[in-house]
Amino acid sequence: RKEMTAACTPRRRIINLTSVLSLQEEINEQGHEVLREMLHNHSFVGCVNPQWALAQHQTKLYLLNTTKLSEELFYQILIYDFANFGVLRLSEPAPLFDLAMLALDSPESGWTEEDGPKEGLAEYIVEFLKKKAEMLADYFSLEIDEEGNLIGLPLLIDNYVPPLEGLPIFILRLATEVNWDEEKECFESLSKECAMFYSIRKQYISEESTLSGQQSEVPGSIPNSWKWTVEHIVYKALRSHILPPKHFTEDGNILQLANLPDLYKVFERC
């Protein structure tokens, strides 16, 4: 597991931080080997919608929660590849102030007048994250320049770009939802926020969305749709870069829909 690298990086740093090793061990302890084997050997059937997909393993048909699986995938990559990410360069710098204002204007932020003026909160978020810029760049390849612009994001899987519609809320939550006081809790909560931002979430995906850094293989055609990215990038990574937690067998994120021999018997009677 320590050699797990989802995106190509030129050289690998050895990380011996106790906090990170502890988080890696927790993933191992909570892992479910049968689910790992199923995901490793599954045959992708198709997307139901951005949140759900169908896959077959041996004779069984499964309904998989793409949102939760991708979130767990990105969390584990962030923990196992800690401080070893490439950088996704933004085509132009994104001012943190503008991103924070967009987030505060969104109902998702939960902002009320009692929280104070949005401009003041946005300025605080910019200054707060600028103070964390060195650590964010060093460990997470999340790059913020001296003017308070976001200029780079971590490359977690080759050819995958997170849904940038979720970027404003991500920046807001970096400042408000991460435990910045304790090292282990900081790395864990920061990785979880980043994983949620990178995950496939239906509120940020339309039929026209593209999450891939590449064009489709047909010359002159439109960019790959999110469905292509889910199948050929995300579920491909799920084959080798995730140890599913045991609770996925109990919380409805992986559901067995049918045993195909039983279905064949039904059709034979028709």
Rank of each mutant, 00 (worst) to 15 (best):
N28C: 11
Q76T: 09
E231D: 11
F128E: 02
A53F: 07
I171P: 00
E25N: 12
F128K: 02
K184R: 04
L129N: 01
E113Q: 04
S199V: 11
S91Y: 11
S199E: 01
Y139G: 06
P154R: 00
H40N: 09
L90A: 01
L17H: 04
G166D: 14
W226T: 06
K184H: 05
E37K: 10
F248C: 12
V126L: 03
P10Q: 06
K265S: 04
P117I: 15
G86N: 06
D262A: 07
Y264K: 04
A100G: 14
Y204A: 10
S22T: 10
L96Q: 00
G110P: 01
P168R: 01
E37G: 10
T5K: 10
P219V: 08
S43G: 09
G31Q: 09
Q256V: 06
S43Q: 06
S216P: 08
L156T: 02
L17M: 03
L155S: 07
Q56K: 02
N179H: 05
I157D: 03
S19I: 15
G120V: 15
M38A: 07
E193N: 03
T5M: 13
L172K: 01
Y124H: 01
A237S: 09
S206H: 06
K132P: 01
L35K: 11
E123T: 02
E193A: 10
Y62N: 06
L255E: 03
G120P: 15
N149H: 05
G86A: 07
M101D: 01
Q76E: 13
I125P: 00
E146F: 12
E72N: 10
E72D: 13
G166E: 11
Y80W: 07
A237I: 03
T176S: 05
L167H: 00
M101I: 09
E33R: 14
P93D: 03
W52R: 05
P261V: 12
S221V: 09
S212C: 08
L63T: 13
L102G: 05
K227D: 09
W111A: 15
G120Y: 13
E193T: 12
L164H: 06
S19P: 03
S221A: 08
D181W: 12
E119C: 07
I222K: 05
E72V: 08
E188F: 10
L63I: 05
I125A: 15
Q30Y: 12
F170K: 00
F267P: 05
E3D: 11
H57G: 12
R1A: 09
Q214F: 05
Q51R: 10
P10K: 12
V230M: 07
K68H: 08
Y80N: 03
G213W: 07
T67M: 06
K246F: 14
A122Q: 01
P219C: 09
W226R: 06
T176V: 05
E71N: 07
E217R: 10
Q214H: 07
I205M: 08
S212D: 07
K130C: 14
M135D: 03
A122H: 01
I77D: 03
E250C: 14
E33W: 15
I15R: 13
R12S: 11
Y80D: 04
M135H: 04
P50Y: 03
C194R: 00
F85P: 02
S212W: 13
A237E: 10
M38I: 10
K227M: 06
E193W: 02
E165V: 05
D251G: 04
C270A: 15
R89C: 14
E25F: 14
A100W: 00
Y124Q: 01
C47R: 01
S141K: 11
D181M: 10
